[in-house]
């Protein structure tokens, strides 16, 4: 039953991915990307990764949809209706996929308990057996994230901080320009962004 649910959810993912490729409207594609994340998160629950499902639902389906919508509201949500379906890209993708599928043939099967990832004594086995007494919390993922791989998490936080600074410095530069120059520069769709800036000045 578990395998059936996983298989059905995986099939949904493929269907949604094809929909995203085919759809020319960017807003529709963004909506479908949100559903894609939601289905993936549902499948993560079925595959026992509850923490990942939490994060994927909140970050992948929530925050990234809102980021995309923000970007679209500053640009335009219509992809040009020209055909870009190049045969060369398709051939390249099919060949790469074929090579990767050939590479999976000697991988351990889904759910096998004998695969090297499961039996390595210093990693999974140790985390499951010792983390309760060594670190404390019953959630093993929390223990590993906060203690065994604590520096990794620190690095992640740094990356997010750097990204925040980068976004602010990319988008915030124009605020320092004089008002009239912003209005002259802004073509078409960005006029609204410029008026937002004006409001910011008044406040």
């Amino acid at each position: 039953m578990e395998t059936l649910v996983v298989a059905v959810l995986l099939t949904f993912l493929v269907v949604i991915a094809i929909g995203i490729i085919v759809l020319r409207d960017l807003l529709g594609a963004v909506i479908l990307l949100g559903v894609y994340s939601l289905v993936a998160a549902g499948a993560f629950v079925v595959m026992d990764a509850v923490d990942v499902a939490f994060t994927e639902a909140a970050v992948g389906s929530g925050i990234s949809t809102i980021l995309f919508l923000g970007a679209l509201s500053f640009t335009s949500h219509k992809q040009k209706p020209r055909g870009h379906d190049s045969v060369a890209a398709l051939v390249f993708v099919v060949i790469t996929g074929g090579v990767l599928i050939y590479g999976t043939l000697d991988m351990p099967y889904y759910g096998s308990a004998e695969s090297p990832a499961q039996t390595h004594p210093e990693l999974a086995v140790r985390f499951i057996e010792e983390s309760g007494s060594e670190v404390g919390p019953p959630n093993i993922v929390t223990s590993v994230l906060g203690s065994y791989r604590g520096y990794d998490t620190l690095g992640e936080t740094l990356v997010v901080f750097a990204a925040g600074i980068a976004v602010l410095s990319i988008l915030g530069l124009k605020r320092r320009r004089p008002e009239d120059e912003v209005l002259e520069d802004a073509p078409g769709d960005t006029a609204r962004g410029a008026s937002d800036n004006q409001q910011a000045y008044k406040e």
Binding site: I31, A41, A53, F54, S61, G62, T65, L69
Partner: peptide
């Protein structure tokens, strides 16, 4: 693990309303 379902219910509403706000503006 019903907490996850709870999170989904809220995120789902949030996403829909965000897209609708986009239409309004």
């Amino acid at each position: 693990f019903l907490d996850i379902a709870l999170v989904y219910a809220l995120i789902n509403f949030l996403g829909t309303v965000a897209v609708l706000k986009f239409f309004e503006y």
